[in-house]
Amino acid sequence: MSKFKSLLDTVKGREPEPEPEKPPQDSDVNHKKPVVRQEPIVEPQPEPKRGRPKGKRSDPDYEQVTAYIRKDTHASIKIALLQEGQKREFSELVQELLEQWVKSRT
């Protein structure tokens, strides 16, 4: 029997035929379900983030400023920092020198 038979009968003005009863299937029979012991749910640990570490730009303790210095001074400073070999950044040197200046004024 087609699943659209009753719809077709209604449209044609006929009395729909009653559907025959289906024999129960194994899935319809009430079987006792086995008791399943559930383990506690453990939240997975977040993976460490990939990529570059956060820099000074996103650190609220730092503020970006602009200063004009002579080109030859800037070039000399970059060369000296590279020769130091400590991989100290230009901004770290400026910070150190400015802190010394502030201390000298008190």
Rank of each mutant, 00 (worst) to 15 (best):
L82S: 11
E21P: 00
K56P: 06
P44M: 10
S58L: 04
K87I: 09
E39V: 14
K78I: 08
V65D: 09
R88L: 10
K5T: 07
E84M: 14
E89S: 14
S27H: 08
K5A: 12
T66M: 04
P34T: 03
P40G: 00
D72M: 08
K103T: 04
D59N: 06
K3D: 07
I41D: 03
E89V: 09
V36M: 04
H74P: 01
G13N: 07
Y68L: 05
H74F: 02
P34C: 06
D59I: 00
N30R: 14
G85P: 05
A67P: 01
K54Y: 07
W101D: 12
Q45A: 15
Q95P: 00
A67H: 07
I41M: 05
N30L: 03
V36E: 04
R88W: 05
Q64K: 10
S27W: 11
L8D: 12
P18E: 10
T73R: 01
K56D: 03
K12N: 09
G51Q: 07
R52G: 03
E92G: 13
E15K: 10
E43K: 10
K78D: 12
K33Y: 03
N30W: 02
Y68K: 05
T73C: 06
F4T: 15
V29F: 04
V29R: 07
P40V: 00
H31E: 09
S91V: 02
S76M: 14
P24G: 04
E17V: 12
S6T: 15
Q38C: 14
F90Q: 02
E39G: 09
K71D: 08
F4Y: 14
R57Y: 02
K49T: 09
A80Y: 12
D59L: 02
V65N: 09
L93I: 03
D26K: 12
V42Y: 08
Q38H: 10
P34D: 08
K103V: 01
E19L: 09
K87D: 12
R57Q: 07
I79R: 15
E63Y: 08
T106W: 08
P24Y: 10
L8K: 10
P40D: 01
D59C: 05
V42G: 04
P48W: 05
V94M: 02
E99N: 09
K33E: 01
D61W: 01
P48R: 09
S91T: 06
T106Y: 11
E21M: 14
T10Y: 12
V11D: 11
D9A: 12
G55Y: 03
G13T: 01
V42H: 04
L98K: 08
L7A: 12
Y68R: 09
R52Q: 05
S2L: 05
R52L: 03
V11Y: 13
E99L: 06
L97F: 05
H74D: 11
G13D: 02
E63P: 07
E17A: 11
V94D: 00
P48F: 11
L97D: 11
P53G: 06
P24F: 15
H31I: 04
R14I: 13
K54N: 09
I77Y: 01
F90D: 00
A80V: 13
R88E: 05
V42F: 00
L93Y: 02
I41V: 11
P40S: 00
Q64C: 11
V36L: 15
D28S: 04
K12S: 10
I77N: 00
K22Q: 14
G85D: 03
I79Y: 11
N30Y: 11
S104M: 06
Q38D: 13
E17R: 11
D9V: 05
S104C: 03
H74E: 06
S91K: 00
